[in-house]
Every structure is written in structure tokens, then in C-alpha cells.
Design a binder for these strands. Sequence first.
DNA 1: CTCTAACCGAGACGGTACGTCAGGTCTTGAA
DNA 2: TTCAAGACCTGACGTACCGTCTCGGTTAGAG
Lengths: 220, 220, 220, 220
Amino acid sequence: MAPNNPAPPDSTRRSERSRRAIYDAAIALVVEVGYPKTTIEGIAARAGVGKQTIYRWWGSKADVLLEAFLDLSEQAARTAAQEHESHEGREGRAGHESQGIPDTGDLAADLKLVLRATVDELRDPGFEAPSRALAADGVVNEELGRRFVAQLLEPQLQLYVDRLRSAQETGQVRPDIDPRIALELFVSPLAQRWLQYTGPITYEYTDTLVDYALNGLAPR
Amino acid sequence: MAPNNPAPPDSTRRSERSRRAIYDAAIALVVEVGYPKTTIEGIAARAGVGKQTIYRWWGSKADVLLEAFLDLSEQAARTAAQEHESHEGREGRAGHESQGIPDTGDLAADLKLVLRATVDELRDPGFEAPSRALAADGVVNEELGRRFVAQLLEPQLQLYVDRLRSAQETGQVRPDIDPRIALELFVSPLAQRWLQYTGPITYEYTDTLVDYALNGLAPR
Amino acid sequence: MAPNNPAPPDSTRRSERSRRAIYDAAIALVVEVGYPKTTIEGIAARAGVGKQTIYRWWGSKADVLLEAFLDLSEQAARTAAQEHESHEGREGRAGHESQGIPDTGDLAADLKLVLRATVDELRDPGFEAPSRALAADGVVNEELGRRFVAQLLEPQLQLYVDRLRSAQETGQVRPDIDPRIALELFVSPLAQRWLQYTGPITYEYTDTLVDYALNGLAPR
Amino acid sequence: MAPNNPAPPDSTRRSERSRRAIYDAAIALVVEVGYPKTTIEGIAARAGVGKQTIYRWWGSKADVLLEAFLDLSEQAARTAAQEHESHEGREGRAGHESQGIPDTGDLAADLKLVLRATVDELRDPGFEAPSRALAADGVVNEELGRRFVAQLLEPQLQLYVDRLRSAQETGQVRPDIDPRIALELFVSPLAQRWLQYTGPITYEYTDTLVDYALNGLAPR
DNA sequence: CTCTAACCGAGACGGTACGTCAGGTCTTGAA
DNA sequence: TTCAAGACCTGACGTACCGTCTCGGTTAGAG
């Protein structure tokens, strides 16, 4: 279809070593100097890699960072999973939503727990810097934004959908509610405060969001 | 305190002509070529202005655009106000939130109306391009983000606070609710969908948000 | 004739204070930072004068410096003349050529004396910096070069012409010699060494030049 | 010793193409618009080269022009040499001093011939413009001046030294004369007239210089 | 002894060029 | 063929001065 213009490189010969070094350099630079001052040349230099090696495999700074961050998330998830395993038996101590949202039967409590964990994550500079960078670029670059959402955000949101559906089955949420929209009532406010600095991010705040969303603003 | 190094220029001698031209050029370029490809040189050239005239009065591309957009908003508000005046007698047909949120007594209807107007605005390229650009830069540049919020976003949100308080007085909203948080239940989801392309933006969607937020997710 | 384009300013209202300050600033800057780094803005700032005051009365940096240097030379000449007067009675101890070249009857001795004084002058940074600057600009700017020569150099050279003519009358120089050309035999070599760094500038050197020039290179 | 900060570029990878284009552009611009209006940007643009490519290999406009002019001189010398070769058998018709000064046994005639050729050269705009530019900058920039002399001027002067020494052997010049100084008697006057516009440059003038210098000003 | 036209300081303005940085492409030599 | 290295062309950066143009204020000579 497309005239395969750029003659795609042979990925079997790809240097795993370089890929890792590039990921690490990209994340480190974003954390240390910020996204705008992170440059492809800087990443290449820090990774001990030729610029061409980056241009060969990625299309832009954002591409590099998106993959690097995905990789980082996977690592973190893997680590968390192992830890989870070693603590098996204990219930509920969810550390990271990628493990799924706990289902103790008490929807409000489960949501508050998970949102508190998210609050923690949003404050961890190691995660915050790259994800904020990607989110920012995604705001102005629709294609990147959609990939960011599809690969990072939506999988997280899907866990809320699952938990809400489960709550619908137990009657804690009205059956006519669309869970994909419902989750936004407590997730989006947190997201906006984080993205736009529209307010402080605290446990009390997220707890409140859950209460308001579940019970509504109108008198009962 | 600070040694106010660069000796601030004399604003009384400032050229109004240049300021206007720079505002116009900045907005036009962001709309036409996008924020990242909008350069200070480009703005200066398009405005028929020396680069130094921009650097003399603003600290960055974002500063220029923020002021330009503020100016644009004021113009729009002024225009809308005049139009409103000329249509006096008709009630309620608010076109722009800066006029305040209508208060017909029916909170849900009023909110839906305003949110629909916001949906329209978010789709107007003349407004979308610059505000998206500023929002994006604000995500990664906290100082800018806070100014964006303080000068553009928060005044809008305050209107919701007012309307919600009015609703509390008429008993349509529970008195223990914090309006500043409550408004996020329907505003933030819309904001996030717009910022991050996490879902379509439609009247049905915003209507649904209002219903969910007012009535809550839990069965009554 | 000409449409009196720029409407020449009224020189009777001219500020002597500013003129002096500009001269001083120009000379000082050329000495301190060099001609290329001397700017009109810098002169204006250092002189505590508006830029327009410079542009009103001079056409270029070189114009300013040329006048400043002429002024400086006149001052120096006046100072030297006073000093000369106070030492009256003593013969021959010419300090500065502008007083005329001494005429003791011994042409070689007189020339050597004057050239040694020139050597001293060429090494005085206060004179060297500005005159070198003007000479340099004159090399590449014919109009300036010709003014530099006419106003500064040629009057000096004329003194040599006079002395050589006197020597022709006493038979120390052949009558068919053109003094204006002859003087170049000892003046130009010194000038070139100074302008182009083609060799060291010493008393021995200038003495030698006089000997060679008077006696010729060929065996007698 | 010095911390050789800027990490000198790898000259083996240097683009010969760019170098040539830069030389040509620099010379052409100096001839066409003059040295002061010749800018690095202009050279880069005319040469179809990035500015950085100039800054990578040269430190200043003068550096570029000096090398360009040296290259031009070498080319010219090479061309002249070839021409000379093809005219072998004919004696004495020296076109360019770099071929050496002719030695017909008649010193005065040989010097006059060569100086007349120099007069021609000083009037060839292709040579005059760049060499005047370099000379001018060298007046005010000692480091450049010394390089100009060492690389361009002194080699020419050395030819006079050689010819004068030969004349000393044949008894046409007194043995106690220092040829390096002697040559200045006829070369420097011409140089000064050229540099400073102190007088017309003609064959008659240079012929006269030779006569005066060889025979001296004093009666024989 | 005003009045008023200029010169004055200051410095904003539209520009040009500076020297630097990074983007993305292309070439070279070693592995 | 990939890779590290880095030269190359491009284009924007933020700065320095250019020469022109107001803007009050001051200042002197014509009334």
C-alpha cells in the first residue's frame, strides 16, 4: 500500500543494549532536566549511542519517551507482582492498580484505597516527570495523545470499569449506569488537578470525590 | 530583593500597535501551524515587528500566547456582552459562561445548558488551538499552568461555585457539599476528554455527566 | 540645489558639554575595548548622551572618532606648544613634529631626531589606539581614509617636505629630487612596520632608514 | 596545557566541497559588497552551507578570508607557474613575483619591472578587495596582522631580499646594507600609498622610488 | 521676561547579524 | 548491516547594535 518508503530496518539485528541505554537515558533526562530540555542529542550522548540509532527506530522524542515509559511501567508492574506474590495470603494491600482493583465488597472503600495509591504515584517524581511530559505532548499532538491513552491510560481505566460492573452485580451501583462514564466522576477530577494544578491533591480530596460520586450532590 | 537586573522597560512608551499585531499574529500562527511550530521569529515576522520587541515585553512564547488569549477572551466577552444587551428581554439564553450561569431554578437544566455551550466552544478552532496550546505547556511548566488556571480557568469555575451555592439555598444540592469540589464532577470529565482524547465530546455525554453527578451512582 | 534633505541642525544651539563628553567617551572606549567593540550605543551611554545626539552631528562611528582624535591632537599640540614656550632659549629640543622639524643644518641628525619622536608617539597607547583604529577603517573606507590623510597625516608630511626643501637649498639634497616622494623613503617604512607589524620599531631602525635613504643603496 | 575545551572537529571527515564553496563565496562577497558588509551569514548563504560549518572550522570572518585568499594566491601562483613553463625559453617576462624576481644583472631595471607588476596587481579588484580587507583588519587585530604578514607578505618580501643579496655579490649594492631593511625603501612607500591613499600609484612613481633608493637623496 | 522652537536625555521601535543549539540526514570505519 | 561518531544543512534561539522615531524636559534667542 504505502511504498514502504524508508525501508524498515532489520529488527533482528537490533542492539538490545542500545535500546535499554536509550530508555534509561530518556527517563533520566526527563526527570533531571525536564521534558523540554530533553533532546535527542542529549539522549544519544547520555546513552553512548549514535543519533542515527535513535532515528532508525523511533520517529520523535515523544516516541522514545512513550516506549521508555511503557517499559518502565512494565518493569514496575513485574516488580510489584513479585512483591505481591511474596506477600500472598494477606488481602487487600494493593500497591498498584495494574494488579487490579481490590474487591472487598465495599465499593467506596476499594475506590478510596486505589485512588490513594494513585495519589502516591502522582507524587513519585520517577513516574510523574515522564508521564506528565507525555501527557503534555499528547495534549497538543493528537496522535501521540491517543497512543498515550490507549497504551497507558485506558488499561488503567478498564480496571475501574470492571470493578464498577462488579458493583452493579452486587447492587451497589445502579444498573443503568455506564461504568466507562461513571469512573470519570472520580478519576477525571484527580487527573485535572494533577494536569492543570487546579487544586491540591490529597487523600481527603479523593475520598470526598468517591463519596460525592457515589451518593450524588442532590439530597436523597 | 531580587536585583531586578534587566531594568524593566518603560511601559508608558509602549506601542499599542505592536502589541495588537503580536497578539493577532500569535493566535493566527497557533491556529494555522500549531503551537510547536509557532516560533517567536515567526510571530515577529508575521506581526511586522522586531524580535526584540517581543523579548522586551514577554519572557517566552507561552507568555505571549497567554496574554494574547486573555485579550482574545476579553474581546469575545465584550462582544458577547454587547450582543446580550441588544437581545435584552429574552431570558436565560446564555451564550457564554462569562455572563454567568443561568439560574432558572432547575439546576440540572442550567448546568446542561452551560456545558453544551462549553462543548461548542471546545470545538471552535479559534478558541481550541490557543487554549489547548496553553494547557499543554502548562502541564509541563507549573508556573505557566498556575497562571493559566488563575487567569482563565478559575474565573469560569467560580461561576459554577456560585450556581451551586444558589442551588444549596434552594435545597437542590445538599448543604454539606463543597461546591468547589462538586463542580469537578461534571467539569473535569469534560476537561479530561478534551485534553487527553479519552473519549468523544457530545451533548449526550455532558448531559449524562450532570445526571450522574447530581443523582450519584448508587441506587437511591 | 540638494533638497536640503535632513534639515541640518542649528549648530549655534549645540551643546559643547555633550560634544566633549562624546569625544572623551569615544577615545576612552577605543583605548579600553578596542575599535571594533566600540559602538555608538556604548559611546552614548558612556557619555551620558542620547544616541540621537550622536547621529545628529556625525555620520558614523569613524566620523566621531576622527573628530575626537583631531581634537585630542590639537589639545596635545597646544599643551606641547606651551611647554615649548616655557623652555624657550634652549635650542633644538623639538618634542613634537607639529612644532616643525628642527633645522640645525645637519639633515640626517634632524630627521633622526624627529623619527625617534615619532617612534615614541607610535608607542603611546593613548595615541596609538585611536590612530590605529582610524587608519584601519581608512584602509577599507576610501572616503574616511582620504580625510584621515588630509587632516592628520598630510600636515605632518608637509613638515618633511619643508625640511627637505631647506636641505635642497643648502645642497644636502639633490635639487632634482621631489621632496614629497623622497620623504616616503624613511616615513613609509616606519608607517608600514607600525600598520602591519612587519618588523620591530626602534631608534636604530629609523636611524638606519635615514642613512640608507640619504646615501642610497648603491656604492658611492 | 589549555583545557582544549571545544573538542576540535575531526578534519578527516571535512567536506572539501564546502571548503571550496566557502572560499569562493567569501572572496566574491568581499569583491562585490565590501568587507564590512560581508557577513558570516552571507558567506554561508552564498556558499549553500550551514553557518555552523563555518564556525566549526574558522574562528572569525577574517580567518575565513585569510585562508580563502591564501588559497586564491596559491591557485594563481600555480596557474602562473604553468603559464611560465609553457613560455620557457623567453627570459625575464616575470608576471608575478612569486616566480622570483628576475635577475638580468641590472638591479634597477629588475626592481622597476617587478614593482610595475605589483602596481598592476594592486589595481586588480579581484586581488585588491580581499587583500585590502585583510590588511585593514590586520591593522587593528595584531594576531591577524601577524599571520597576514607571515603567510602573505613576508614570502614576497623575501624575494626582494634574495635579489638584493645577489646585487651585493655583483657589487651593485653596498655590502654593509641590510637587505631586509633596504627593500622597504621602495616597497613600503608603495604599500603606504595603497593602504592609506596618500598618493597616486603609477609606474613613474615606482620607477622614481627605485632611483631614489638606489642613488640616495644626497648629491653624489 | 516671557514664549517657543531647538536640542537634549532616554529609550522603544523595525531590523540585521551575531554565535549557539538542536533537528534530522548522511557518511565513515570498526565490529 | 548495524552501530558510534559526528559533519552537514537547516532553522530558531536570545542578544547586541544599527539607525530612526517619539517622548517629555530644558534651554536659549526672538519677541
